[in-house]
Nucleic acid binder design. Structure first.
Lengths: 346, 346
DNA sequence: TTGTAGGCGTTATCAT
DNA sequence: ATGATAACGCCTACAA
């Protein structure tokens, strides 16, 4: 029976003693095997095996001044979008021997700042952040320590911070044009909270842009901001449909809200798209599960995660600024968007 | 303009010099503030602020022999179930100043072992694992280092490894009984890969158990094992419905597969539950988005994540085995399960 | 090819 | 209440 106090974590010195060599030789066997003779290497590796030795991470980080760790702060994991991108991000890092440290901010700027500081303190070599909007102080802290910083899920080539993302506004404007092309004139929007969330605000701005292009009054656009959930999307739809005049098309800031809106329409006895067209953004699996299938914008989440990982690794290797990458999004026109119903004077 | 070489990470010595005290005093100010005079503390904290000092994690871990880090290895983040539980797990840890290190195994035992070893090397204080099934060697390695280990998403009180989870087999058996009670006699199952996945195998075993209780031939149960995706669930349904005799109820190992099966039934022109009843497991949001809404088993994912975090922290505090916790699951009877169609001789 | 020894940044144990 | 100093485990000149 092994009790707690028995726990023995072997150190490099134990291995050295066991193999009858110096600690330096052990270290070399593990880090630069070719600098040591076949025979001694054999001996050392055996000792390593036998003792179950693993280098102490802290000690190694202390001297190497690198942790082989990358941090990511995302709003929440409980969201297919981030989960999918993050999974790809993680797989890519992992394949290169880099560990991922994840934190979530729950969409709260104060929490995000705290999380970033924690990651800094942990000595991450690089960090992935969602969107640009945060305090200058944080960016300075990162820069001062030479921590590679990359933004994802957004992309503004004008920003000095490199990004791997896409143009939220442009994509939403394109979708809005497709809606307008079907004759809709009374639009409404259900959005995630725009406060402190540049992705959400840019999407709303995209709708407004397309409306202005079409000569509509963008300022009058009915807009409900709400939290991220299916139920919230439903509640927002109820709200909008109670207004007068009723919108004929409701553009949602993401698929989750859109699915909630469709479900609510169904419960209210409204036909989609007969009575009201509904669109989403992201193209997650949900989009083709709902009936009618959802018109949305496809975002290459996995590609974004993978390329973000590669970009970050490159920045760490040679810390000279890499350029931003804007990935292409794609309109997915599905049954939830139809022609505007004939105007019956209301 | 700041170039890379300018990066200066202040150390405790810099702070000490700045505040004209010893490094010991600085350390005390940060860790045991009451052991130092108000006046000097003031001075030190100012210096800390001014230099933007953060203690070096590696150095601290080296001497403290604790990292305040907990690792988790989950099959994938790209799965609402794990994402949700993990999010709660993370929030709870975070509130207590502990950082989460996440790795994913992509359902591959070899990768999982590698990930666990990486986490061990990083000096995690504790680790969360999904299900029990893995090599003895890994459990030994964890035990030898005194790393608190907890299993989630499963719960076998007989195992020496503590768990916060639920009884997959019992829950699935209960659901199966509800299906049988509606007159179904020709059941079939769509499951995730059972190889190396105790949650999946136990669910299948639960179905068989309930069948035997009802005097049915459990060995003859049609079973399709497939990967985790909506499309795969659909393909599996096609397969099953092509067999003779056709099943009247298809029990799926999780909601994602079930939703895929329902969508496929819709595409094949089959009525659910008129022609075939379909059930899931997990009760994720998807379950009430699909039409008809899905009969499934509700699992308290967030509660599981939170309690797992608390249990792990407790184990780290005083390393004497804590007991396993079996959470209750709940049947959610919804429209996708109906009475067995009248037998028309085939 | 291998060994010796100094130092990485912190904390904790002694003194003072 | 504060300061000097010895670990902690590892890597890497530098020496042999």
């Amino acid at each position: 029976m092994q009790t707690e106090s028995d726990k023995i974590v072997p150190t490099i010195a134990d291995v050295a003693r066991h193999a009858q060599v110096s600690t330096a030789t052990v270290s070399r066997c593990l880090n630069t095997p070719d600098l040591v003779q076949e025979k001694t290497r054999q001996k050392v590796l055996e000792a390593v095996e036998e003792l179950g030795y693993t280098p102490n991470f802290g000690a190694r980080a202390l001297v190497a001044r690198r942790t082989n760790t990358i941090g990511a702060v995302i709003p929440t994991m409980e969201n297919a979008i981030f989960a999918r991108g993050l999974q790809a991000f993680q797989e890519t890092l992992n394949a290169r021997g880099v560990t991922l440290l994840v934190a979530s901010s729950q969409y709260r700027p104060d929490l995000e700042e705290e999380q970033i500081r924690t990651l800094i303190a942990r000595g991450v070599d690089g960090i992935l952040l969602i969107g640009y909007r945060r305090s200058e102080a944080i960016y300075r802290a990162l820069e001062r320590r030479g921590i590679a910083t990359l933004v994802a899920w957004a992309c503004d080539p004008a920003s000095p911070v490199p990004a791997v993302g896409f143009d939220n506004g442009k994509a939403m404007a394109a979708l809005t044009r497709a809606v307008l092309a079907r004759g809709h004139r009374r639009l409404a929007v259900i959005s995630a909270q725009t406060e402190g969330n540049d992705r959400a605000s840019e999407r709303v701005a995209g709708v407004r842009l397309a409306m202005r292009e079409a000569g509509l009054d963008a300022a009058a656009l009915p807009l409900v901001e709400t939290v991220y959930s299916i139920d919230a999307g439903g509640a927002a739809l109820s709200d909008l449909m109670a207004r007068s005049p009723r919108p004929t098309a409701v553009l949602c800031g993401n698929d989750v809200l859109a699915v909630g809106a469709i479900r609510q329409a169904r419960r209210m006895g409204l036909g989609v798209p007969g009575d009201v067209s509904i669109t989403g953004f992201d193209d997650i699996e949900l989009a083709t599960v709902i009936e009618p299938e959802l018109t949305t914008v496809h975002v290459p989440h996995r590609e974004m995660g993978t390329r973000a990982a590669l970009a970050l690794l490159e920045m760490i290797g040679k810390p000279h600024a890499v350029g931003s990458v804007a990935l292409e999004t794609r309109l997915c026109l599905r049954a939830s968007l139809g022609p505007a119903p004939a105007d019956r004077g209301q």
